[in-house]
Amino acid sequence: MVIHREITPLKEDDCFLVFDRNRNDFTFPIHFHPEYEINFIHNAKGAKRIVGDHIGEIDDYELVMIGPNVYHGWENFNNDTSRTLHEITIQFPKDLFDSFFLNKNILKPIKELFKASRHGILFSKETILAVESKLYSLSKKSGFDNFIEFQSLLYDLAVSRDKKTLTNYSVGDPNDFHNSERIEKMYSFIKDNYRQKIKVEDAADHINMTEISFSRLIKKSTGKTFTELVNEFRLRYATRKLIESNESVSEICFDCGFNNISNFNRRFKEKQGCTPTEFRANYMGTPNIF
């Protein structure tokens, strides 16, 4: 099974992202990303939860916190896909709170929460019902008030009872390509240069590998070529711009590193199942980035 690395739309100056949406089934593949994630799901009883080496069937209410680079995802299983499920996803960077801040006495529960999330945390239904209103309000508030609410949510989760860790899977094997320093350097290189033409030999040189070894390793570990990874970055930022800005499709196309509209439309449709124009017109969901 190929595990996909998700490229989130968070930028360096963002604190966190809240994505609130209704849908009928799960379509996103098993994946990982360097950000923390809190995922709330309602009305999808019977769906399959995968976190590291854990596989389980979810109840009508689901709330899980995932640490950086832990494989995770939800798949259709025994859930009724004719019913509309509600999903709220919160993602935030692993360096949002530094160690100096987290070592303060009052914040030690949150520090322990982050540590436990490396194994995935499943919260009880009692906890979910207690924090449900905060989860809903995060997608509706804005500004500093929302950041305060976000910290309050983290503290409530940290001190809640009956938490369960889901997996013995441990991130940090120095020989694991997904979590190694060189893969992080590669993604940083793409992130810094995706607006312009990037050569695979330049990326390989950036992490001190030959082009052939670099290409083989990427393909083996991600199932994608280097070009496909770069395009994935470009499409992620294009999707964000289509949602958040009034820029024309052609402006977004060139700003995100594509060199012609037809190629951009084709790549976008392969990823989203529709053209950029159709995506903007039919977009459903509420993304908020703070």
Results as ranks from 00 to 15, higher is better:
E132F: 05
E132L: 02
E132I: 00
L135E: 07
Y136F: 12
Y136D: 10
S137T: 12
L138Q: 12
L138E: 11
S139M: 10
S139P: 09
S139D: 10
S139R: 14
S139I: 10
K140P: 00
S142K: 14
S142C: 08
D145L: 11
D145E: 15
N146R: 13
N146Y: 02
F147A: 04
E149S: 13
L153N: 08
L153I: 07
L153F: 01
L154N: 00
L154W: 00
D156A: 14
L157G: 07
A158N: 11
A158V: 08
V159L: 06
V159S: 05
S160V: 03
S160I: 04
K163S: 04
K163E: 01
K163Q: 12
K163W: 00
K164Y: 03
T165Y: 02
T165V: 09
L166F: 06
T167Q: 03
T167A: 02
T167S: 09
Y169C: 05
Y169V: 02
S170G: 00
S170V: 06
S170K: 12
S170A: 06
V171N: 04
V171A: 01
D173S: 05
D173R: 02
D173A: 01
P174D: 10
P174Q: 02
D176Y: 10
D176W: 07
S180A: 05
S180W: 02
E181A: 11
E181N: 07
E181P: 00
E181F: 05
K185A: 11
M186Q: 11
M186G: 04
Y187H: 10
S188D: 12
S188K: 14
F189M: 11
I190Q: 14
I190P: 10
K191Q: 13
D192I: 00
D192E: 11
N193K: 07
N193F: 05
Y194K: 11
Y194R: 09
Y194W: 12
R195K: 14
R195C: 07
K197A: 11
K197R: 13
V200H: 14
V200G: 15
V200M: 14
E201N: 15
E201S: 15
